[in-house]
Protein backbone atom coordinates (compact mmCIF):
# COMPACT_ATOMS: atom_id res chain seq x y z
CA UNK A 1 0.00 0.00 0.00
CA UNK A 2 1.41 3.24 -1.06
CA UNK A 3 1.08 6.05 1.43
CA UNK A 4 0.39 9.35 -0.20
CA UNK A 5 2.90 11.92 0.86
CA UNK A 6 1.55 15.46 0.76
CA UNK A 7 3.39 17.65 -1.73
CA UNK A 8 5.49 20.28 -0.02
CA UNK A 9 4.24 23.83 -0.35
CA UNK A 10 6.59 24.99 -3.08
CA UNK A 11 5.45 28.61 -2.96
CA UNK A 12 6.24 29.02 0.73
CA UNK A 13 10.04 29.43 0.66
CA UNK A 14 9.85 31.77 -2.35
CA UNK A 15 7.29 33.92 -0.57
CA UNK A 16 9.60 34.18 2.41
CA UNK A 17 12.56 35.09 0.25
CA UNK A 18 10.50 37.73 -1.55
CA UNK A 19 9.37 39.19 1.80
CA UNK A 20 12.91 39.18 3.08
CA UNK A 21 14.27 40.88 -0.02
CA UNK A 22 11.50 43.49 0.04
CA UNK A 23 12.23 44.27 3.68
CA UNK A 24 15.91 44.49 2.91
CA UNK A 25 15.31 46.86 0.00
CA UNK A 26 13.01 49.09 2.06
CA UNK A 27 15.42 49.27 4.96
CA UNK A 28 18.31 50.03 2.58
CA UNK A 29 16.30 52.81 0.93
CA UNK A 30 15.31 54.32 4.28
CA UNK A 31 18.87 54.13 5.60
CA UNK A 32 20.27 55.69 2.45
CA UNK A 33 17.72 58.50 2.52
CA UNK A 34 18.42 59.18 6.20
CA UNK A 35 22.16 59.18 5.64
CA UNK A 36 21.77 61.43 2.63
CA UNK A 37 19.56 63.93 4.40
CA UNK A 38 21.83 63.90 7.40
CA UNK A 39 24.97 64.68 5.36
CA UNK A 40 23.49 67.07 2.74
CA UNK A 41 23.76 70.70 3.72
CA UNK A 42 21.59 73.35 2.14
CA UNK A 43 22.05 77.07 2.07
CA UNK A 44 19.55 79.69 1.00
CA UNK A 45 19.84 83.48 0.88
CA UNK A 46 17.91 86.28 -0.80
CA UNK A 47 19.40 89.69 -1.58
CA UNK A 48 17.52 92.82 -2.60
CA UNK A 49 19.15 94.47 -5.63
CA UNK A 50 18.50 97.30 -8.05
CA UNK A 51 17.54 95.56 -11.33
CA UNK A 52 19.51 97.92 -13.56
CA UNK A 53 22.77 97.56 -11.60
CA UNK A 54 22.40 94.02 -10.33
CA UNK A 55 25.72 92.22 -10.17
CA UNK A 56 26.68 88.71 -9.04
CA UNK A 57 30.04 87.02 -8.56
CA UNK A 58 30.37 83.34 -7.69
CA UNK A 59 33.67 81.62 -6.92
CA UNK A 60 33.22 77.90 -6.46
CA UNK A 61 35.84 75.20 -5.95
CA UNK A 62 33.87 72.23 -7.25
CA UNK A 63 30.25 71.51 -8.17
CA UNK A 64 27.78 73.24 -10.46
CA UNK A 65 26.68 76.83 -10.85
CA UNK A 66 23.33 77.38 -12.51
CA UNK A 67 22.24 80.97 -13.00
CA UNK A 68 18.86 81.83 -14.49
CA UNK A 69 17.64 85.30 -15.33
CA UNK A 70 14.16 86.67 -14.89
CA UNK A 71 13.04 85.24 -11.58
CA UNK A 72 12.28 88.36 -9.56
CA UNK A 73 12.96 91.86 -10.90
CA UNK A 74 14.74 93.08 -7.77
CA UNK A 75 16.09 90.01 -6.02
CA UNK A 76 18.93 87.58 -6.26
CA UNK A 77 17.96 84.25 -4.76
CA UNK A 78 20.76 81.81 -3.96
CA UNK A 79 20.15 78.15 -3.19
CA UNK A 80 23.13 75.92 -2.53
CA UNK A 81 23.57 72.32 -1.57
CA UNK A 82 26.62 70.35 -0.57
CA UNK A 83 26.81 66.64 0.07
CA UNK A 84 29.57 66.73 2.60
CA UNK A 85 30.39 69.33 5.16
CA UNK A 86 33.89 70.22 4.08
CA UNK A 87 33.22 73.44 2.18
CA UNK A 88 32.19 76.80 3.58
CA UNK A 89 29.89 79.15 1.70
CA UNK A 90 30.17 82.90 2.27
CA UNK A 91 27.56 85.21 0.76
CA UNK A 92 28.04 88.95 1.05
CA UNK A 93 26.71 92.13 -0.53
CA UNK A 94 28.82 95.26 -0.79
CA UNK A 95 27.72 98.89 -0.58
CA UNK A 96 27.17 99.08 -4.35
CA UNK A 97 24.79 96.12 -4.14
CA UNK A 98 27.10 93.55 -5.71
CA UNK A 99 26.49 90.05 -4.37
CA UNK A 100 29.51 87.79 -3.93
CA UNK A 101 29.28 84.09 -3.16
CA UNK A 102 32.55 82.40 -2.32
CA UNK A 103 33.27 78.81 -1.41
CA UNK A 104 36.31 77.86 0.61
CA UNK A 105 37.44 74.33 1.41
CA UNK A 106 37.61 71.20 -0.68
CA UNK A 107 33.99 69.98 -0.92
CA UNK A 108 31.62 70.26 -3.87
CA UNK A 109 28.76 72.76 -3.73
CA UNK A 110 25.90 72.97 -6.26
CA UNK A 111 24.30 76.39 -6.75
CA UNK A 112 20.96 77.35 -8.24
CA UNK A 113 20.67 81.10 -8.47
CA UNK A 114 17.99 83.31 -9.94
CA UNK A 115 18.79 86.91 -10.80
CA UNK A 116 17.07 89.86 -12.50
CA UNK A 117 17.38 89.35 -16.26
CA UNK A 118 19.59 92.41 -16.73
CA UNK A 119 22.20 91.27 -14.17
CA UNK A 120 25.91 91.11 -14.86
CA UNK A 121 27.40 87.83 -13.71
CA UNK A 122 30.97 86.69 -13.14
CA UNK A 123 31.21 82.97 -12.44
CA UNK A 124 34.26 80.84 -11.66
CA UNK A 125 34.27 77.15 -10.90
CA UNK A 126 37.51 75.20 -10.68
CA UNK A 127 35.97 71.79 -11.25
CA UNK A 128 32.34 71.37 -12.25
CA UNK A 129 29.93 72.95 -14.68
CA UNK A 130 28.37 76.33 -15.33
CA UNK A 131 24.93 76.87 -16.86
CA UNK A 132 23.60 80.33 -17.64
CA UNK A 133 20.14 81.00 -19.07
CA UNK A 134 17.93 83.92 -20.06
CA UNK A 135 20.21 86.79 -19.16
CA UNK A 136 20.61 90.22 -20.74
CA UNK A 137 23.62 91.48 -18.79
CA UNK A 138 27.32 90.78 -19.23
CA UNK A 139 28.33 87.18 -18.65
CA UNK A 140 31.78 85.98 -17.69
CA UNK A 141 32.04 82.25 -17.05
CA UNK A 142 35.21 80.35 -16.36
CA UNK A 143 35.69 76.65 -15.56
CA UNK A 144 39.04 74.89 -15.37
CA UNK A 145 37.68 71.36 -15.60
CA UNK A 146 34.08 71.14 -16.84
CA UNK A 147 31.51 72.35 -19.34
CA UNK A 148 29.90 75.73 -19.85
CA UNK A 149 26.45 76.02 -21.34
CA UNK A 150 24.90 79.38 -22.13
CA UNK A 151 21.38 79.56 -23.54
CA UNK A 152 18.72 82.15 -24.27
CA UNK A 153 21.07 85.10 -23.96
CA UNK A 154 20.41 88.64 -25.06
CA UNK A 155 23.67 90.06 -23.89
CA UNK A 156 26.20 92.43 -25.46
CA UNK A 157 29.20 90.94 -23.68
CA UNK A 158 29.91 87.23 -23.19
CA UNK A 159 33.15 85.56 -22.20
CA UNK A 160 33.05 81.81 -21.61
CA UNK A 161 36.22 79.87 -21.14
CA UNK A 162 36.95 76.30 -20.11
CA UNK A 163 40.38 74.68 -19.96
CA UNK A 164 39.16 71.10 -20.05
CA UNK A 165 35.53 71.03 -21.14
CA UNK A 166 33.06 72.04 -23.82
CA UNK A 167 31.69 75.52 -24.26
CA UNK A 168 28.35 76.17 -25.92
CA UNK A 169 26.49 79.41 -26.56
CA UNK A 170 23.04 80.02 -27.92
CA UNK A 171 21.56 83.47 -28.07
CA UNK A 172 21.14 86.73 -29.87
CA UNK A 173 24.02 88.62 -31.40
CA UNK A 174 23.67 92.31 -30.59
CA UNK A 175 25.21 94.80 -33.07
CA UNK A 176 27.82 96.15 -30.69
CA UNK A 177 28.28 92.85 -28.91
CA UNK A 178 31.49 91.03 -28.10
CA UNK A 179 31.37 87.26 -27.72
CA UNK A 180 34.40 85.19 -26.77
CA UNK A 181 34.13 81.43 -26.40
CA UNK A 182 37.25 79.44 -25.64
CA UNK A 183 38.29 75.96 -24.63
CA UNK A 184 41.76 74.49 -24.49
CA UNK A 185 40.83 70.84 -25.01
CA UNK A 186 37.06 70.84 -25.53
CA UNK A 187 34.60 71.62 -28.27
CA UNK A 188 33.20 75.10 -28.90
CA UNK A 189 29.63 75.47 -30.19
CA UNK A 190 27.88 78.72 -31.09
CA UNK A 191 24.25 78.80 -32.17
CA UNK A 192 23.50 82.16 -33.76
CA UNK A 193 20.53 83.70 -35.56
CA UNK A 194 20.71 83.11 -39.32
CA UNK A 195 20.57 86.86 -39.95
CA UNK A 196 23.15 87.86 -37.35
CA UNK A 197 25.70 90.54 -38.27
CA UNK A 198 29.10 89.59 -36.98
CA UNK A 199 32.78 89.49 -37.61
CA UNK A 200 34.22 86.06 -36.83
CA UNK A 201 37.68 85.09 -35.71
CA UNK A 202 37.89 81.34 -35.16
CA UNK A 203 41.01 79.30 -34.48
CA UNK A 204 41.35 75.59 -33.89
CA UNK A 205 44.84 74.13 -33.80
CA UNK A 206 43.84 70.49 -34.20
CA UNK A 207 40.12 69.87 -34.25
CA UNK A 208 38.81 71.51 -37.39
CA UNK A 209 35.89 73.84 -38.00
CA UNK A 210 32.31 73.62 -39.18
CA UNK A 211 30.91 77.02 -40.11
CA UNK A 212 27.33 75.78 -40.16
CA UNK A 213 26.45 77.03 -43.62
CA UNK A 214 26.80 80.74 -42.80
CA UNK A 215 27.58 82.52 -46.06
CA UNK A 216 30.55 84.61 -45.04
CA UNK A 217 33.02 86.94 -46.63
CA UNK A 218 36.45 85.52 -45.83
CA UNK A 219 39.42 87.73 -45.08
CA UNK A 220 41.62 84.81 -44.16
CA UNK A 221 40.90 81.08 -44.23
CA UNK A 222 43.24 78.20 -43.44
CA UNK A 223 42.50 74.83 -41.89
CA UNK A 224 43.44 76.33 -38.49
CA UNK A 225 42.14 79.87 -38.69
CA UNK A 226 39.15 81.68 -40.14
CA UNK A 227 38.63 85.42 -40.19
CA UNK A 228 35.41 86.38 -41.90
CA UNK A 229 32.31 88.51 -41.64
CA UNK A 230 28.62 87.78 -41.94
CA UNK A 231 26.10 90.44 -42.86
CA UNK A 232 27.28 93.89 -41.85
CA UNK A 233 29.83 92.33 -39.49
CA UNK A 234 29.03 94.57 -36.57
CA UNK A 235 29.38 92.27 -33.56
CA UNK A 236 32.66 90.58 -32.73
CA UNK A 237 32.73 86.80 -32.24
CA UNK A 238 35.94 85.12 -31.21
CA UNK A 239 36.14 81.33 -30.94
CA UNK A 240 39.25 79.39 -29.96
CA UNK A 241 40.16 75.84 -29.10
CA UNK A 242 43.58 74.25 -29.11
CA UNK A 243 42.65 70.58 -29.22
CA UNK A 244 38.89 70.53 -29.83
CA UNK A 245 36.68 71.51 -32.74
CA UNK A 246 34.56 74.56 -33.53
CA UNK A 247 30.96 74.41 -34.71
CA UNK A 248 28.68 77.22 -35.77
CA UNK A 249 24.94 76.52 -35.97
CA UNK A 250 22.24 78.63 -37.57
CA UNK A 251 19.19 79.28 -35.47
CA UNK A 252 16.10 79.36 -37.69
Amino acid sequence: MVKEIPAPNAALPFKSIRKFLSALAISFAVTTAMTHSASAQTFSRTFAVAPETSELEVVNQAGTIKVTGGGHAARIVVNARQNDNTAKVDATQNAQGKVKIEVTGQGAVDFEITVPASSNVDLLCYKGAITVANLGGAVRARVTDGNIQITGLRSARVEAHSTKGNVSFSGEVLPSGSYTLKSFSGRVDATLPANADFRLSAASFRGGMDLGGFQMKFDRQTHQLVEASHGAGRASISLWTQEGSIHLHRKP
Binding site: T104, L124, Y126, H161, A203, Q242
Partner: peptide, 23 residues
Protein backbone atom coordinates in the same frame (compact mmCIF):
# COMPACT_ATOMS: atom_id res chain seq x y z
CA UNK B 1 52.19 83.65 -33.57
CA UNK B 2 48.48 83.86 -32.80
CA UNK B 3 48.46 80.25 -31.59
CA UNK B 4 51.41 80.87 -29.31
CA UNK B 5 49.79 84.02 -27.91
CA UNK B 6 46.52 82.15 -27.31
CA UNK B 7 48.37 79.47 -25.37
CA UNK B 8 50.17 82.01 -23.22
CA UNK B 9 46.78 83.59 -22.51
CA UNK B 10 45.41 80.17 -21.59
CA UNK B 11 48.25 79.58 -19.18
CA UNK B 12 47.82 83.02 -17.61
CA UNK B 13 44.08 82.44 -17.28
CA UNK B 14 44.61 79.16 -15.46
CA UNK B 15 47.03 80.80 -13.03
CA UNK B 16 44.65 83.74 -12.53
CA UNK B 17 41.81 81.37 -11.69
CA UNK B 18 43.86 79.51 -9.15
CA UNK B 19 44.94 82.81 -7.63
CA UNK B 20 41.28 83.80 -7.26
CA UNK B 21 40.34 80.66 -5.36
CA UNK B 22 40.67 80.62 -1.59
CA UNK B 23 41.48 77.06 -0.62
Amino acid sequence: QQMVRALYTEKRQLLEDVERLRW
